[in-house]
């Protein structure tokens, strides 16, 4: 009886030892000389996060019709402590001509990785770091986007729309607090709203993670009961919970970075846009042409056309009355041509 177990185990064990050999025949495809390879490093997961999704989409679209450009997308997950090691592993293969990523925290990680691999180039959007020759950064003017979304929110809360109440209260639900949020996004949103009525107040709450949609829903519900009638949400997957609650209890949402009217039609009354895809495609063509100015950092905003607003969506037209849309459009126009001025806070 025992002997049989031993022999079966022995056979399995030998198979186990041999299994790597069986796979050893795999070979890497030879690399063409004029080929160009891009690593898209997603610090998190792409799904549910507009900047990451659009970065991936931009890179893929850029590479689609170019045979010599290859794109590898790598999702590094939520554990920030692992990002550096994973990026190092990827860079260490030496396969990638350029690493494309997005997130304010990436420059410091790339700087450390770059020390070990001095030939590696990094391009990072949504971040600001000057003076490193391996790096080129672009910072979206999130203050500006929050400013006009806040203005729209102010218009709605001061209006007599169906779910708007008399309280001059607007809400903001975020997953976590981080510098860009605290220094650009939140102040921008409130400043914008106060351009409509300087008595408007902001109710800001934190979920604590990027996934607990049910908690987001509870928070939104509690805020609506507290008098909030319009929300801004930056909460990854948990934003789903806010959409659910506003449709049930009646409130409005303005959304950053992405067209989300269809997430809750009639309730999402404004969607900002972040032209990450456009920027990524332009950057990549610069990279291929060799015209990137490494070491430089740029702030890109409404004027440059990298942030904007989804005016064209029929759901936008149908969910807001004409007068609010007109007033908002004129505000956007004045902001674009510089007749409304503001000072960008320090990040």
């Amino acid at each position: 009886m025992n002997n049989r177990i031993y022999s079966v185990l022995a056979v399995f064990f030998v198979l186990f030892l041999l299994s790597p050999l069986g796979a050893a025949g795999v070979k890497e495809e030879a690399k063409a000389d004029d080929s160009f390879s891009v690593l898209v490093f997603v610090p998190g997961v792409a799904a549910g996060s507009p900047p990451y999704e659009t970065m991936v989409a931009g890179a893929n679209e850029f590479a689609q019709d170019k045979e010599n450009v290859s794109v590898k997308v790598y999702e590094a997950g939520f554990n920030q402590a692992q990002w550096e090691q994973q990026l190092t592993s990827l860079v260490a293969t030496g396969e990638y001509d350029v690493v494309l990523s997005t997130n304010p925290s990436l420059p410091e990680i790339c700087e450390r990785v770059g020390e070990k691999f001095p030939d590696q180039k990094f391009i990072i959007t949504d971040a600001y770091a000057e003076g490193n020759d391996q790096m080129r950064t672009y910072l979206y003017n999130q203050y500006e986007q929050s400013l006009y979304l806040g203005y729209l929110a102010g218009l709605v809360t001061a209006s007599d729309m169906e779910f708007a109440n008399e309280n001059l209260k607007i809400g903001f639900i975020a997953s976590q607090e981080y510098p860009l949020l605290n220094n650009h996004i939140l102040p921008g949103f409130l400043d914008g709203a106060r351009l409509v009525n300087k008595d408007i107040e902001l109710d800001f709450r934190v979920i604590g993670n990027w996934f607990d949609a049910n908690k987001a829903s509870d928070l939104a519900s509690s805020m609506i009961d507290g008098g909030v009638d319009i929300f801004a949400v930056i909460a990854g997957g948990a934003a789903q919970g806010v959409f659910k609650t506003v449709t049930q209890k009646g409130a409005y949402v303005v959304f950053h970075d992405k067209n989300e009217y269809s997430a809750a039609p009639g309730y999402v009354v404004g969607s900002g846009s972040m032209e990450q895809k456009k920027l990524v495609m332009e950057i990549l063509s610069d990279v291929v042409n060799g015209t990137v100015e490494y070491g430089k950092a740029t702030v890109v905003g409404l004027e440059e056309g990298y942030i904007g607003f989804h005016f064209e969506d029929p759901l936008y037209v149908s969910s807001l009355p004409q007068d609010i849309r007109d007033e908002f459009a004129s505000f956007m126009e004045r902001l674009r041509n510089g007749s409304i001025s503001y000072t960008l806070p320090v990040l």
Binding site: G48, N209, F211, D212, A213, N214, S217, G237, Q240, K244
Partner: peptide, 15 residues
């Protein structure tokens, strides 16, 4: 209840 109510699956939805 958590996922069907939401009409979505979010990783670690049970939290």
């Amino acid at each position: 209840m958590l996922s069907v109510n939401l009409g979505a699956f979010v990783p670690n939805i049970t939290a």
